[in-house]
């Protein structure tokens, strides 16, 4: 099922991010997905060699999750594939019944574990969205007809509401919408007021937006993100909150509370929530419980 249908139905769409391992043992990932996510989120984003670190492929992992009765979102970046490979993988996804896409430009190669690799960036997020839209219309990006019935996807992209230059973000968001983007997941949000202000401006595009959350595990992680992660800013009082009760923070409870609170504060302005747990999948049910979001009936 395409998650755009859920948005259309007016559902508050819940998604969570999982990262394939470096290796082919997916047991752990599958077990966690069943145990913590299956009845709590509608779909699972599968990252594409996240942070430019080489791992098992997103598409194959999506297929495994789908076979397990879960709804995967295939994340595709432009870093490692030229337009031929990108379109080919999109068609492959359709072949495997994977209908949800999140289309990204991708981190630069030198940030990961193969800094010597050739960066591709033949297309970027906007032209990739366009390419997928063209495939849906029955043509590839070079204008050649695609045989048979064209595929249909839910085409998603990302945006950073708490970026230090929101105006530039909005300009690009508009380009993505015009190119055919149908839903957005945001970068991690820690400042509800910025998110709300952003959403007031983004409303004009008429495209659903999921509030992005990164569970703040500890002070060090927050400081690191403030220094290095684009579009993310953890305010000082939140860092103080994490510092206040060290034991509680260590147990992960402060982070869970913060996330739940952020959901509550932003819920009315967003069309869903996307949680990037970075290995803390087991805490997602608690967050949602605390935020007052009930379990869901799984869709496939």
């Amino acid at each position: 099922m395409r998650i755009t249908e859920l948005f259309q139905r007016g559902e508050f769409v819940l998604t969570a991010e999982v990262g394939p391992p470096k290796g082919v043992e997916l047991d752990h990932l599958i077990k966690d997905a069943h145990e913590y996510l299956k009845t709590r989120v509608h779909a699972l984003n599968v990252t594409d060699n996240q942070s430019s670190v080489m791992r098992t492929g997103s598409l194959a992992t999506c297929k495994v999750l789908k076979d397990e009765g879960l709804l995967p979102i295939f994340q595709i970046t432009c870093r490692d594939r030229n337009r031929i490979a990108l379109q080919s993988d999109v068609l492959s996804a359709a072949l495997l019944g994977i209908e949800n896409l999140l289309l990204l430009t991708g981190d630069y190669t030198t940030l990961g574990d193969h800094p010597q690799a050739k960066p591709v960036f033949d297309l970027d997020s906007v032209s990739l969205i366009h390419a997928v839209k063209r495939l849906e219309e029955g043509f590839d990006i070079a204008g050649n007809a695609v045989d048979g019935a064209p595929p249909k996807f839910a085409k998603g992209a990302v945006v950073s509401p708490c970026s230090d230059s929101v105006d530039v973000q909005l300009a690009k968001m508009e380009a993505k919408v015009k190119a055919g983007c149908e839903y957005f997941q945001t970068q991690g949000v820690y400042e509800p007021e910025k998110f709300i202000k952003f959403m007031e401006q983004a409303k004009q595009f008429g495209v659903p937006v999921q509030l992005g959350l990164i569970i703040p595990k500890n002070v060090g992680m927050c400081r690191y993100m403030n220094a290095n992660v684009a579009g993310v800013h953890v305010p000082d009082d939140m860092i103080k909150e994490l510092q206040a009760d060290k034991e509680k923070t260590k147990a992960g409870d402060t982070g869970v509370e913060i996330c739940a609170r952020l959901i509550k504060e932003c819920k009315d302005y967003a069309q869903g929530v996307h949680i990037m747990s970075l290995g803390w999948e087991n805490r997602i049910p608690e967050i949602l419980d605390m935020a007052g979001i009930a379990p869901i009936t799984p869709v496939v």
Binding site: T109, T110, P115, Q116, A117, K118, P119
Partner: peptide, 9 residues
């Protein structure tokens, strides 16, 4: 031989 694309940065 593998090319190191990060050399020319």
């Amino acid at each position: 031989e593998l090319r190191d694309y990060s050399k020319v940065n």
